[in-house]
Every structure is written in structure tokens, then in C-alpha cells.
């Protein structure tokens, strides 16, 4: 990686408030558990059977990582939940994780980042649209779904427009000046709604900090007219 620490590449992952899921890819299964832990099972095929040979179990805040090799390295068949950590598991902090696991950690973090970008944190119903500020703050994604079928998806670097006709495109700086009045009005409403969502998020954050460590998110304001 050419870097001296994992922290210089990425921040610890954060699975707070994410709903459980178990997602299989070609070589691994990544799970968000009920506890908020993130679990990665690495698979190897043996006698036409997929076996879990290595597990990384990462705490919800991303700072504690257990590594273990189930069944003393022989692995277990893949089932619907990760193997429990044995007593002889290896235990690391984010900053002490050996470099050979960095890529695996980054893989888990990439998955969590994707899920955060699709998980609503603040939902705000306006007169014309449902505006959702996602969990991937800072610079969280925003999806503004207009009741007439149009949709605007803002990420930190692109704006995607789906017109009510279904025509879709990505907006770039040079195109902003060529937009029709209609599309511009959708964009204006999306930007205004985005600002309201950020303001609501900030206000709720303030209240949350006064409370007893219970998250007030996700939160919904208003309802569809």
C-alpha cells in the first residue's frame, strides 16, 4: 500500500443504526449482525463445498477486530450465520491490525459505506417530494423523490436526474446553464429540501447529545400530502 498505517488510508468503519444483512459475493460473505458487528467470512472450495476458512469480526465502531480460523483451520461449511469466535481468536485494534488484513478491512468498510449511502437518516416530506438524507455523512447522499415520478440523487460529486418521463442523465457543471426551466425548478426544490434536511439533522444532533446515548435517528418529518 506504500502507507505506514491503515488510518492513513481509511477511517474506522461505522455500522451504527444499519439494518442486519448477510450478503454473499464470489469469495466472501459480509454480514451486518443484530449487534451491529460487521463480519466477513472468507470462503474456499473444498470437495465442491464452500467452507469458511477465515473470519474477520469487526466491532460496530470499527475499532476492534477479531480474526479467527474456524475448526482449527479446517473450516466449516457455509451456513446462514458466521461461526462463533473461538477462545483462541486473534484480537486487534484498528491501529494494530496487521497489514495482511488491511485489504479485507477495506473491503468491509467499502460495503458499509455503500449501505450507509442507501440508508435514510432524515426523511422529510415536502409539498412535492420525499427528501431523504442518507447515513453516509459527512457529505451524505440525498435522494429527492418527487411525487410525480421525477427523482434527483445528489452525491458528493455528481447530481443524477431522472425526469418524470423516465429520461435520466448526470449533471455536470457545463450543463447546468443549459437546463430547462422545469428541470431547474426540480433542482431548486431538491436543493432547498436538502438544506432543510441538514438543518433538521443538526437540530436533532444537538438534542441527541443532551440525551441518554439513545440515537434519535432515523427520523421522519411530515408525511406525504
Amino acid at each position: 500500500f506504500g502507507s505506514s498505517t491503515l488510518r492513513s488510508i481509511i477511517s474506522p468503519l461505522n455500522a451504527e443504526r444499519l439494518k442486519p444483512i448477510r450478503q454473499k459475493t464470489k469469495n466472501a460473505v459480509v454480514s451486518i449482525l443484530e449487534s451491529g458487528e460487521v463480519c466477513m467470512e472468507f470462503l474456499k472450495e473444498q470437495n465442491s463445498q464452500e467452507r469458511v476458512k477465515e473470519v474477520l469480526r469487526i466491532s460496530c465502531d470499527g475499532n476492534l477486530i477479531y480474526v479467527y480460523h474456524p475448526n482449527e483451520g479446517k473450516g466449516f461449511p457455509l451456513v446462514d450465520r458466521p461461526p462463533s469466535p473461538p477462545e483462541n481468536r486473534l484480537s486487534y485494534t484498528f491501529d494494530s491490525l496487521p497489514e495482511k488484513y488491511w485489504k479485507k478491512y477495506q473491503y468491509a468498510a467499502k460495503f458499509i459505506k455503500l449501505v450507509r449511502s442507501k440508508t435514510p437518516k432524515v426523511t422529510y416530506y415536502t409539498r412535492y417530494a420525499k427528501c431523504m438524507l442518507m447515513e453516509n455523512s459527512p457529505t451524505a447522499d440525498v435522494e429527492v423523490c418527487f411525487y410525480d415520478g421525477a427523482k434527483i440523487h445528489k452525491t458528493s460529486d455528481v447530481i443524477r436526474v431522472i425526469e418524470k418521463s423516465g429520461r435520466s442523465y448526470t449533471l455536470e457543471g457545463s450543463r447546468l446553464s443549459t437546463l430547462s426551466d422545469e428541470v431547474r425548478s426540480y433542482l431548486d426544490h431538491a436543493n432547498e429540501s436538502h438544506c432543510v434536511c441538514l438543518s433538521l439533522e443538526s437540530a436533532i444532533n444537538t438534542e441527541e447529545k443532551k440525551g441518554e446515548n439513545i440515537s434519535l435517528f432515523p427520523i421522519t418529518f411530515g408525511r406525504r400530502p
Binding site: I21, Q23, K118, C145
Partner: peptide, 26 residues
């Protein structure tokens, strides 16, 4: 552990994302 060509997206993940939306309205 070849993770380079791993792709998360599939129907299962899409269904999960849809369930995250409040009131089931896209």
C-alpha cells in the same frame, strides 16, 4: 483472497435497500 473483482450489487442487496425506505415508497 482475490477481492479486487468483487461486486456487491445483486437482487438481494437491491431488495434490502428498498426495504430501508420509509413507508415502502420509492
Amino acid at each position: 483472497d482475490d477481492l479486487d473483482d468483487e461486486e456487491f450489487y445483486d437482487d438481494h442487496l437491491e431488495a434490502y435497500f428498498k426495504k430501508l425506505l420509509p413507508h415502502g415508497m420509492q
